[in-house]
Nucleic acid binder design. Structure first.
Length: 580
RNA sequence: GCGGCUGUAGUCUAGUCUGGUUAGGACUUGGGCCUUCCAAGCCUACGACCCGGGUUCAAAUCCCGGCAGCCGCACCA
């Protein structure tokens, strides 16, 4: 397999200002990393590339929502209940369990929501032991994967740091829908921090307590999960690891995107298109085919609301295959749930191509009897009846002569003399539906880590990050061949000129030229410009390419334009070398 | 969360067992000299005992607690 070594990479990253663990002078805190001067630029460039993919090329829009969210919002999303578990551990076999599950299993009692103290007391009072080995259980503690805080001066309102950015897109859905003028499909993205208070984050950049996500929520018609540009990606070859292969412990398979859809390996064109996009994105960041694969979630690990979910995984020496992107069909779960909790209608009106004429049974209340009978409750009851399918009521009358309407705890007897039916013809222009959501969710920190890991290159006499120019934190280094005033002043002038052109340039005058090339390579600077004695005579300089270590000589005046072409990849270094 | 091991400049490390002078070295980095193309050499400077408490005349060294790292178990909707 391709050479890489977590430890060497992290050492170099720390030494040269890419990444280090945070709060070091206060002895650190696990699960937090600083991006240093080079790391922050690298990360920003990765995020900007992501924006180029999803905002510019896919035409989605970016929004930004708060990282602190009030409790209600996260109740609706299910995070409050799912992230807050009471735990207990067996002192003998060390297995950890959810305390409420253990108690329910042993006694049949439903104890969800009790305090830890109470659960601990139940465990000891009922002499409940470890379900596996019968051993003694520890006191109950809870871990909450969300960071909790209090909102406001009086601190009455509970808030949480968001555990994912996605919810910030679902919550203002009505406003977004209006922005997109009510039409599906549309996509909204958000890049930002998310927080999870991991129990024991000992996996470096892989499991962080504060991390950066880039998520797109693509709202689509549930009946139409095709993609208009699918043909553009249809022939791409994907390494898929479907759930069925994992169960049978078989190897991943290689199929084209088209075959993945046609053979029903991936649930839809939309989802497959996103897989292809993710693959292209990672490959342009320098990750090669053989360290990438798409792993389908097993039915047991898939969130209960998802139809299909694929992890884009990158191979690492230290952690094995790690998820860097999750691509899921979240269906209508989130919007439905927020509708329920907020009482806001988060549906979309889908207009039919042609208005349809529908004959339908409608009920007409005999208000002369209805009103006096139910008095003040009459309007409420009538409204409730109109919500119910008229055929159901009619059928009930035919069978029992009466329909029982339960409303706010009381059962109202609706007798058939109160209601008349009539067939009406209605024109229906469309229907209200909850859109489905396709969600690619990128873990930016893991991607940055993967890029560093796989760009790390060791050759006989040098070690360097072979970063693509697009994400290199320093794009060009300017060197005077030796540290002499007349060469240095030319170098400084070039530095200034390149910076004016928007190129991220740096200079280095100390030590020998070889040492400076080495330092420059180490942090992945793709090109170096050297000012030598000939420069003083004919206004030319050399450009050295990091990867090949070869040089070409060009006029100083052509330098900015040439570097721009090289950096954006419109022209290769070889072409300049041979083109002259 | 549990158990084991570990913690000396940016990095690697000597010293810790057996408490005692100014904590030594190498690399890196800054400044200078030299140097006309890939980490050369010379001079020079900066830089450390994880934090807190205890024992002692005296603690990097012994003891306790905390924090962090590594390994194993567990956890990771």
């Amino acid at each position: 397999m391709i050479f890489m070594k977590n430890e060497d990479v992290m050492n170099l990253a720390r030494k040269r200002g890419f990444l280090w663990s945070s709060f070091e002078i206060y002895s650190g805190s696990a699960g937090f990393f600083d991006y240093g001067p080079l790391g922050a630029t690298l990360k920003n460039k990765v995020m900007n590339k992501w924006r180029d993919y999803y905002v510019v090329r896919e035409g989605f829009y970016e929004i930004e929502s708060p990282t602190i969210m009030p409790e209600e919002a996260l109740k609706a999303s299910g995070h409050v209940d799912h992230f807050n578990d009471a735990m207990t551990q067996c002192k003998d076999c060390l297995d950890v369990y959810r305390a409420d599950h253990v108690i329910k299993e042993a006694t049949g009692k439903e104890v969800e929501g009790l305090e830890n103290q109470e659960l601990t007391e139940i465990l000891s009072a009922e002499h409940i032991g470890c379900p596996k080995c019968g051993g003694h259980l520890t006191h109950v503690w809870s871990y909450n994967l969300m960071f909790q805080t209090l909102i406001g001066a009086k601190g009455k309102k509970t808030g949480y740091m968001r555990p994912e950015t996605a919810q910030g897109i679902f919550i203002p859905f009505k406003r977004l829908l209006r922005f997109f003028r009510g039409k599906l499909p549309f996509g909204v993205v958000q890049l930002g921090k998310a927080y999870r208070n991991e129990i024991s984050p000992r996996q470096g950049m892989i499991r962080l307590r504060e991390f950066t996500q880039a998520e797109a929520e693509i709202f689509v018609d549930p009946q139409d999960k095709s993609h208009p540009h699918f043909s553009r990606v249809a022939e791409e070859l994907l390494t898929l690891y479907p759930a069925s292969c994992q169960e049978g412990e078989e190897e991943p398979i290689q199929v084209t995107a088209r075959a993945a859809v046609d053979d029903n390996i991936v649930a839809s064109e939309l989802l497959t298109y996103q897989l292809c996009l993710a693959r292209r994105f990672l490959m342009e960041l320098g990750l090669s085919e053989e360290v990438l694969r798409f792993r389908q979630h097993m039915s047991t690990e898939m969130a209960h609301y998802a139809i299909d979910c694929w992890d884009v995984e990158v191979y690492t020496d230290r952690y094995g295959w790690i998820e860097v992107i999750g691509i899921a069909d979240r269906t209508d779960f989130d919007l439905k749930s927020h509708s329920e909790y907020s009482k806001e209608d988060l549906q979309v009106f889908l207009e039919y191509p042609e208005p349809q004429s529908v004959k339908k049974l409608a009920l007409k209340a005999n208000m002369g009897k209805f009103g006096p009978l139910f008095k003040g409750d009459a309007p409420k009851i009538l409204r409730a009846l109109e919500e119910i399918d008229a055929d159901t009521i009619k059928q009930s009358f035919e069978e029992d002569g009466v329909f029982q309407l339960e409303l706010e705890g009381t059962v109202n007897q609706i007798t058939d003399d109160l209601i008349d039916f009539q067939v009406v013809e209605e024109t229906v222009r469309g229907e209200k539906i909850y859109p489905h959501v396709i969600e690619p969710s990128y873990g930016i920190d893991r991607i940055v880590y993967s890029v560093l890991l796989h760009s790390y290159t060791q050759e006989e006499d040098r070690t360097y990050f072979k970063l693509p120019a697009e994400v290199a934190p320093v794009e060009v280094n300017i060197f005077p061949l030796v540290n002499r005033e007349e060469l240095v002043s030319v170098a400084l002038q070039i530095l200034d000129d390149l910076r004016k052109e928007g190129i991220i340039a740096e200079k280095d005058t100390s030590g020998t030229i070889g040492r400076r090339y080495a330092r420059s390579d180490e942090i992945g600077v793709p090109f170096a410009v050297t000012v030598d004695h000939q420069s003083l005579e004919d206004d030319t300089v050399t450009i050295r390419e990091r990867d090949s270590q070869e040089q070409v000589r060009i006029d100083v005046d052509d330098l900015p334009e040439t570097l721009q072409l090289l950096l954006c990849g419109k022209k290769g270094f070889k072409e300049f070398k041979t083109g002259k």
